Amino acid sequence: MKLKNFGVFLIGLAAVAAGLWMPMPAFAHGEKAQMAFLRMRSIHWYDISVSPTQTSVNDEVVVTGKFRPSAFWPGSLPEPVVSYLNIGVPGPVFVRMESEVNGVNMVNSTSFELGATYDFRVVIKARVPGRYHVHPVLHVEHAGPLVGPGIWVETSGNAADFKHEVTTLTGNVVDLEKFGFANVVSWHIIWFVLGLIWLVYWIFFKGRLFLPRYRRVLELGDDADAMITRT
């Protein structure tokens, strides 16, 4: 009997050790990671839909649903006087294409009334392949993000194929993913070279103004302590 109990103990110990040695991904994030009073008394999210959940790079995903700022909004939390509807994903893996609340274009911040119900619709475009949790998020000034329910979306394809093309008022078609990139790189190179020239000038030609003691130490070598005297 004792031998049997000892065997069960060893099996349990091995299972615990295996769990510690092979950690699993943590999924406790999003709305479930928020404190209870935030989930129950701030923004009530419902009828959340994300479609499709299987997509490819450059395909669009539509996020719809409703939310209600609670009439029992906690006094310790700033009210949604200045708020911004967004989508919560792990990094720039999607690009937001459209956003509306109650049928009104909502690309900017706005104010939401406590106790009122709002319909929202956000269109995002797949940018990077992977499996991501997509959340509606309401950013409230001085309060931070209030996260809604998340739904898994799996994106396939190649990130290098992503394009974000728009037509300007003059009729030109530009890819916002690459537009102006060469200009940014050019200015970085110019300022880097100027900064390098400035650094070399002051260190190697005018260094005595900033580093006299260091240069003197190099000149004296092992006798550098002779610089320090009682007088």
Rank of each mutant, 00 (worst) to 15 (best):
92 P>S: 02
92 P>R: 02
92 P>K: 01
93 V>N: 05
94 F>T: 00
94 F>C: 01
95 V>N: 10
95 V>K: 08
95 V>R: 11
97 M>R: 15
98 E>R: 14
98 E>Y: 12
99 S>A: 13
100 E>W: 03
101 V>C: 09
102 N>C: 12
102 N>E: 09
103 G>E: 03
104 V>A: 14
104 V>G: 05
104 V>T: 14
105 N>S: 14
105 N>Q: 12
105 N>K: 14
105 N>W: 03
105 N>V: 15
106 M>A: 15
106 M>Y: 01
106 M>W: 04
107 V>D: 10
108 N>D: 13
108 N>C: 03
109 S>G: 07
109 S>F: 05
109 S>N: 07
110 T>Q: 11
110 T>P: 06
111 S>R: 09
113 E>Q: 15
114 L>Y: 00
115 G>L: 04
115 G>S: 05
116 A>E: 13
116 A>W: 01
116 A>G: 03
117 T>H: 08
118 Y>P: 13
118 Y>V: 10
118 Y>A: 07
118 Y>I: 07
119 D>L: 10
121 R>S: 15
121 R>G: 12
121 R>K: 15
122 V>L: 05
123 V>K: 12
123 V>R: 08
123 V>C: 09
123 V>P: 10
124 I>G: 06
124 I>H: 05
124 I>A: 07
124 I>Y: 06
124 I>E: 04
126 A>I: 02
126 A>V: 04
127 R>G: 00
129 P>F: 12
129 P>A: 13
129 P>L: 13
132 Y>M: 03
132 Y>V: 01
133 H>I: 12
134 V>R: 06
135 H>W: 12
135 H>D: 13
136 P>K: 11
136 P>E: 10
137 V>N: 02
137 V>R: 03
138 L>C: 05
138 L>T: 03
139 H>T: 06
140 V>P: 04
140 V>D: 00
140 V>G: 02
142 H>Q: 13
142 H>D: 14
143 A>S: 12
145 P>A: 12
145 P>K: 05
146 L>G: 01
147 V>W: 04
147 V>Q: 09
148 G>S: 11
148 G>L: 12
149 P>K: 12
151 I>P: 04
152 W>A: 15
152 W>I: 14
152 W>P: 00
153 V>W: 09
154 E>V: 13
154 E>Q: 15
154 E>W: 03
154 E>L: 06
155 T>L: 10
156 S>P: 05
157 G>E: 01
157 G>V: 01
157 G>L: 02
159 A>M: 05
159 A>D: 04
159 A>S: 11
160 A>Y: 01
160 A>S: 11
161 D>I: 01
161 D>Q: 08
162 F>R: 00
163 K>C: 03
163 K>G: 04
164 H>W: 07
164 H>A: 08
165 E>Q: 13
165 E>H: 02
168 T>A: 07
169 L>G: 05
170 T>C: 09
171 G>Q: 06
171 G>C: 10
172 N>K: 15
172 N>A: 15
172 N>L: 13
173 V>A: 06
174 V>H: 08
174 V>T: 07
175 D>A: 07
175 D>C: 09
175 D>R: 05
176 L>M: 12
176 L>W: 02
177 E>C: 01
177 E>T: 04
